[in-house]
Design a binder for these strands. Sequence first.
RNA 1: GGUGGGUUGGCCGAGAGGCGAGGCAACGGACUGCAAAUCCGUGUACACGGGUUCAAAUCCCGUACCCACCUCCA
Length: 471
Amino acid sequence: MTFRLYDTATREVRDFVPLEEGKAGLYVCGLTVQSEPHVGHVRSAVNFDVLQRWLRHLGYDVTFIRNVTDIDDKILIKSADQGLAWYQLAYRMKRELDQAYDDLNVAPPTYEPAATGHVPEMIVLIEELIAKGHAYAAEDGSGDVYFDVRSWPQYGELTRQRIDDMEAAEDADPRGKRDPRDFALWKGQKVGSEPDTAAWPSPWGKGRPGWHIECSAMAGKYLGPAFDIHGGGVDLRFPHHENELAQSRAAGRPFATYWMHNAWITTAGEKMSKSLGNSLTIPAVLQKYRGIELRYYLVAAHYRSHVEFSFEALDEAAAGFRRIENFLDRAADVLGGIGAHGIACADFVNAMDDDLGTPAAVAAIHEVVREGNKLLGSGDSPALRGNAASVVAMLDVLGLNPADPAWRTGTGGQEEKLLATVDALVAGVLAERSEARAAKDFARADALRDRLHAAGVQLEDTPDGPKWSLS
RNA sequence: GGUGGGUUGGCCGAGAGGCGAGGCAACGGACUGCAAAUCCGUGUACACGGGUUCAAAUCCCGUACCCACCUCCA
């Protein structure tokens, strides 16, 4: 069976047929680094990370470009509010974002271009559009350059909207626009109100790039005029992706073959907007949950399904994931480690091939875990070996392998030392408890167990003796 | 006004004409000194009203409610 994915442009699930056999070019709109990353931002990153991993698993040579928008109106406004240089704020938030990606085991893309580093490429593209009659410098002397939507009959093709049906922008400041729907490719510097560092020289005077042109220019630079998949959040369909498509095609570039959009995460029915409080920023959530648990929660829902975020649901997801982890721990104990070359089961592969059906893929993992738990009971080690390796292989595809070094917290081995220390202390208590049990002094044995439990240590009596874990 | 998406059991969350995805929780059983973990079992859920069909959560028509986007929000 071939990999199929839902294409927003055609609104159907289609076979993935790459432009070049064996290769996949992927461009995803990353973030505007203007505030701390929250759960919603990271969902997009995790979804496309899973796509990247699945394409690699299928043997594709993947070129994955995810940009960073490091200059825009909001960055300028927020940095001014906070008394920071705009680039200082952008860089600070970029570092926060990178940390969030690392915390969730989002594999780095092939390259992560920043808008400010690609102004020359954007200028070339704008010049091409002007030469072809699809863009014009504003006549009001503002230094702005606009895309002329009326010059491009296909405008609206991605979201199937007709220009005349679109609500005109309310801000009633048409500036030098011929049509209110024309969008900025280049924004002339507003001398006095905008810092000089946020302006670049151009044929139209000093200014900065419009949002949409960035992605077209960067996608073109790293993936060429035509590439396979373009992704982002649903909100980007219009105007951002519509505009990217229009300006790229108007300049004679075929652009993306497939468009993928991930759905939202909301809280209390509301969009997790950047104006919301900070309780759902990644650092805040990670104070109570491990990154791998949050990632499991995100992956357990389909990328095109709207998720209503709640800590209750996250709790349940975390409990479900621990079931898998627990199995791997027990299997590793019995087998003395789990091999690296497991084979994903058919249900898993079929689920992933069907538009990244991660919910069914996760269900498939749970089925294999159940089988594995039975094998643990029956003592069939050879079968267990393959079974456990299969679980690990599938988790790897989803970026959820607990043994992945990416999940290491970077505490310089402190954590390992602490665990060794606790293990030694617990071992003493366990020895005492074993004596008590052997002497049928269950009251004393249970008291010892209660004491450990109160300290956050969970006990489990196995045929090989007692095992402990953090509860 | 235009465009798109949604409403599934106690909870989360799949599925898209016919065998009750999976997880969490609950209950019963097995195992256990008791637990824990694990396994086995237990649920007739698909917003509402019609229709098509041998068969509808799934297709069609209508209704209600919710959500997103409509020019710089993942």
